[in-house]
Design a binder for these strands. Structure first.
Lengths: 228, 228
DNA sequence: CAGTGGTCTAGACCACGAT
DNA sequence: TCGTGGTCTAGACCACTGG
């Protein structure tokens, strides 16, 4: 049996038997190294695989922790993040990182807009940052958008303040790693796995309302897709 | 700038400029080590991140290769794998690994069956194995199932031979790593990232028809989900 | 057979966190 | 200040691939 597999199995067992509960800290790399008379490289081999598996995650220079349960997420239905989280026993939070007006060519064309609002937000579950998103929408259609509380539901603001309702959406989802700017914002290491989601939402006339790029930590969600 | 980031950027550039085309081999780890006056550990740090990103993959002891383009997959619609692949310019293939009759308790209950057919199959695109699946269905409902060509479309066989049509399905999707048995079958390393899909399919009476567990290489597909 | 990636040892220095 | 993980060096042996 490979050594890193033994270490992996050992930690697996710790998690399975709830010796270490969700959110709690694992023994340090050096402790594990001693326990298995090995080296940090080999210990990290095991830890990185467990991270890829979604069972543990690291916080920069703080340690390795057990991943909390995943949020069940329905990418095919327009859901209110807070509602969804609450139903599943999480406390959800949204932080507005920045609001800008700008004009990214490709997205302007998609939205048929001259100028864009560009929001950047972070979403957290139980105080754990799990998602970063860019939201782009037409600055003309949503005039004075920044005067609304943009750390709440954008869908609600669009519906109530701009009589704009989302009736259709499309998501394109890839497994990849966080871009370095995003890993920095989420206080993650470079190379952290994630789900990259491009989400387009349309109104009743079939017009594109907003264009969103989301990065979800791969271990924070479970997707549920109903079909046909 | 970190050394492994430099190596990563270097390879990024090779891919971006098509110096190395999809499916082709990267320089060996030792070549890269020399080029950057570094060590294999650091080179592998870069390669593993590029793998997590989905840009390259390794074949055991053969080398690192550039990932071909991803198959666009619609988990919310029942699709014919061959059709889908063909439309996107891939040659698809299915290999039957095993057929058994058995009685796994949990799945028997879900299917309300006494005995199950249990198929194991591998699916390939352009001769690259990209998915492993378990298919479970009621052995009584699908009597003599094994007498049909089980390396073709199960949906078709059920429709044509058993007058059973799928009208609804649900998928639960998680990002994780291949279980070791599966990584072995797909000739992948232990710890290879994947999408783990549990797919349940129902007939017009709302009865569960089959229960599938799929493991897709994370770099082989892109999910497209339409909503509302 | 030589070359490849997979695994492993035994160290080191650093930035940052907790205290 | 001390412990943490993040990065890096300089080697090694092995199983397996390919010619």
């Amino acid at each position: 049996m490979l050594l890193y597999q033994e270490i992996r199995n050992y930690i697996h067992a710790l998690l399975k038997t709830d010796v270490i509960a969700a959110g709690h800290k694992l023994p340090s790399e050096r402790e594990l190294q001693q326990k298995f008379s090995s080296t940090r490289i080999t210990v990290r081999e095991a830890l990185l695989r467990l991270e890829a598996e979604g069972l543990i995650f690291s916080q920069k220079r703080k340690g390795w922790f057990v991943t909390p349960k995943r949020l069940k997420w329905h990418p095919a239905t327009k859901v209110n993040f807070y509602e969804l989280a609450k139903q599943q026993g999480f406390v959800a939070q949204t932080t507005l990182v920045s609001v800008q007006q700008q004009a990214k060519l490709e997205i302007c064309q998609a939205l048929d807009a001259q100028k864009l609002y560009h929001l950047q937000r972070i979403r957290s579950l139980d105080n754990r940052a799990v998602m970063f998103e860019h939201i782009y929408c037409d600055a003309k259609r949503f005039a004075d958008f920044h005067s609304h509380p943009l750390d709440t539901s954008i869908t609600d603001i669009m519906a109530k303040q701009y009589a704009t309702n989302i009736v259709k959406e499309q998501s394109i989802i890839n497994v990849t790693v966080l871009p370095d700017e995003v890993s920095h914002l989420l206080e993650k290491n470079s190379g952290t796995p994630c789900l990259h989601v491009i989400r387009k939402r349309f109104d009743e006339h079939g017009l594109l309302v907003d264009y969103n790029i989301e990065y979800w930590l791969h271990n924070a969600i479970e997707m549920v897709v109903d079909g046909q």
